[in-house]
Design a binder for these strands. Structure first.
Lengths: 358, 358
DNA sequence: ATGAAAGCGCTAACAC
DNA sequence: GTGTTAGCGCTTTCAT
């Protein structure tokens, strides 16, 4: 039980040393677990530590070290469940190994991403977990490379020639979605996404398309993507429907797209799954309580986080060898938003017909 | 433009000093913006800095300072939009002032909360923004107090005798919800919440009850809360409905409760707003795209964050005086999940009747 | 087995 | 104005 917690100056290693009647160096050794210290002295040190409520100052301790026990994490945003969980996991994993995690949000900006990275470099972080805004070929990864930083790239990446990468197996998951949709008889499917996240989105798209066409060569797959942000995507989608296109199912390659799709369905008073089916990449808690529940691809957050940290620490400890590119399997959650085409009312070119509600 | 970015040893202040032909102390002064340096020398320093690509090591720099330029942030979780946005805001605000934000999730555990705080104390953070799991009277705040840490308490707090507090004006927002619900003719309303977050939840409950009864003394207000976590709440709610209770509206005092309410409505095939109305504390992006859109109280995240940081830095800079307790106004977003009672089918004790969907 | 000494990279007094 | 001198709190040779 710690006592003497004076709100003022915290005890330093010297206080412990003098209290234990040994030198600071010995205290340091004892606390580092060096076994060559006389047990009796070690015990005195432990007693002094407890008595004074001494705790190592990680900042001072890191000063003398080559690599500081800090891990940087850069996520595109913190607002979604996916990245929120990711940060939580990474934090726990870092803490387990005695490291402090410093997380920052790039707010979907590559410029900010590099600035943050520079700041983390200033801190001499031991390693970085970067979830790039776009993909592994952006300026952030380049910065890390040219500054000899050690890191792991996650999420919107496929593989890299300098860093280990870990991401969800988008292609496989998308193929499974294709199997389900085509299996249910959907012959005209719209896929929506943001193209900037090139690597991942392309993988998702290709995985889907390949599997769908393999199962039914005559299936029609339309694609709407936006280069920039989510609003252009909304307009494109609106135009697409306005010109009378009537797919029986929509597959959104990202969460924001799922939201956009739902809101456009609302505008037109279309209900899932009778009027149209919907599947989205990325699950969220609300998707199982809405009416209808929304089918979704669940990314294995914990596995990605844990694999990323394992690889990262391996590199921090000096592991050599070519970078690895891990793909973690996803789970596809079929829910009520997916039905068979032609089962519901599905009025021809039907536009809005009634006020919303119920 | 920085050059000579050797991936190896980064230039130190001494490298800059010798390159500029001055002492390290002078470099330090120039970089700190001290004006008593000969302009010519200052320029040589800047040149050297640019030439070498020198950047201050914040860790080393903090060593000599009393307060380190680090702010700690502890949130109950990162997975919800509210806390995700909060961290993003806090991070930006800290960065603006040249501070690094270290964020950690207490994962809704008071024990972990204190551990994190202890670790942050080890780092000698200049200040802490704590969003306590329960309220301002928990062990975390006590720890801060007894260790003389400076901090601000946010979100699940009302006021404290040692720390400034900033939170949403739950009571006022709840009163507004009451006005809307009672105004629409609801005479039997169920309020659900988690009681542990005592301070805030009680404020919300009382704000609601007081206003509702003022408007219509005969309104019936049932309350279901759980001490522990969300699952008991679900059971209680299920029991409540199972025993035939049939309020015309539900007001959830927290996001998880809204989710639970929706999923229980689903179980019974009740639709909003025809079968029952719903309003939730805490808005989320999905609430406006689901069918129906869910009415919600929006907390002013940015204002809370900005006010908290302002107060915190004032204290860090040594401001004295009694702690303040700020309440930031919320916005109530009425949406389709709220209707007038008796407008829809609303079958008496009606249990499930049809398969779900549309 | 232990301690003295020398820093890590930087800043703050205090001379000059 | 500027440099010298001392450290911040800790770790790490390297004598002893």
């Amino acid at each position: 039980m710690a006592q003497h917690k004076s709100p003022q100056r915290r005890p330093s290693i010297h206080d412990v040393a003098s209290h234990a009647g040994v030198s600071a160096a010995t205290v340091s050794k004892v606390l580092a677990g060096v076994t060559t210290v006389k047990p009796e002295n070690a015990q005195r040190v432990f007693d002094a530590v407890e008595h004074l409520g001494y705790r190592v100052d990680p900042l001072a301790s890191d000063m003398r070290r080559a690599k500081r026990r800090i891990i940087g994490a850069i996520m595109p945003e913190f607002e979604s469940e996916f990245f929120g969980q990711m940060v939580t996991e990474l934090e726990g994993l870092a803490e387990q190994r005695g490291y402090t995690l410093v997380a920052a949000s790039s707010r979907e900006s590559e410029a900010r991403e590099t600035e943050i990275l520079a700041r983390m470099h200033d801190w001499r972080v031991a390693g970085v977990v970067l979830a790039p805004v776009r993909n592994e070929h952006g300026p952030a990864a380049a910065f890390m490379k040219s500054n000899g930083m050690t890191g792991v790239l996650i999420d919107r990446v496929l593989s890299d020639d300098a860093f280990d990468t870990v991401s969800a197996d988008s292609a496989a998951a998308s193929a499974e979605v294709a199997r389900m949709l085509v299996g249910k008889g959907h012959g005209h499917i719209l896929v929506i996404g943001l193209a900037e996240q090139a690597a991942t989105v392309r993988a998702r798209l290709e995985g889907f398309r390949t599997q769908a066409l393999a199962l039914n060569p005559s299936v029609r797959i339309d694609v709407i993507t936006s280069e920039v942000s989510v609003e252009p995507l909304r307009s494109s989608l609106r135009d697409y429907f306005a010109r009378g296109e009537r797919p029986t199912a929509v597959y959104s390659l990202l969460l924001k797209g799922t939201l956009v799709a739902l809101s456009e369905f609302r505008r037109r008073d279309w209900h899932c799954p009778n009027d149209i089916s919907l599947v989205g990449f990325d699950d969220a808690e609300w998707m199982q309580v809405t009416w209808p529940a929304i089918a979704a691809v669940v990314q294995p957050v914990r596995q990605i986080a844990s694999e990323a940290m394992t690889l990262l620490f391996r590199r921090i400890e000096g592991a050599e060898g070519p970078p690895t590119a891990r793909l973690e399997p996803c789970q596809v959650l079929m829910r009520e938003s997916v039905g068979s085409p032609g089962n519901g009312p599905h009025p021809g070119g039907g536009d809005r017909q009634q006020p919303p509600l119920s």
